[in-house]
């Protein structure tokens, strides 16, 4: 499933009046962009009924190149975790 499937889902809603696929796509892009920029600022994003995106700091640790076995340091970095809302897999 991808962006175009989400756009189609919105357009199929009975209450949809005048929105075009292009404008729904634009709004969806803006929605993802707002989430990404909040995460980039280090702020978690909580979407009720869907889940929470959490920014987590990962400490530096020694790693290895799995192919050669050569030690490679992994520097401190940030990553995004997602915790699905509890309502998720119930239908």
């Amino acid at each position: 499933m991808k962006r175009s499937d989400i756009v189609r889902h919105v357009l199929e809603d009975g209450e949809n009046q005048e929105l075009t696929a292009r404008s729904v796509g634009k709004i969806f892009d803006f929605f993802l962009e707002e989430i990404a920029s909040s995460l980039e600022r280090g702020e978690d994003v909580k979407i009720s009924g869907f889940g929470t995106f959490i920014v987590r700091k990962i400490k530096a640790r020694p790693g290895r190149n799995p192919r050669t076995g050569e030690p490679v340091p992994i520097p401190e970095h940030h990553t995004v975790l997602f915790h699905p809302s509890r309502s998720f897999f119930k239908k």
Partner: peptide
């Protein structure tokens, strides 16, 4: 309305 539909659409696919 749009955000609720985005979330509903995403959950539908994942389900």
């Amino acid at each position: 309305r749009l955000i609720l539909l985005f979330v509903e659409g995403m959950k539908k696919g994942l389900n």
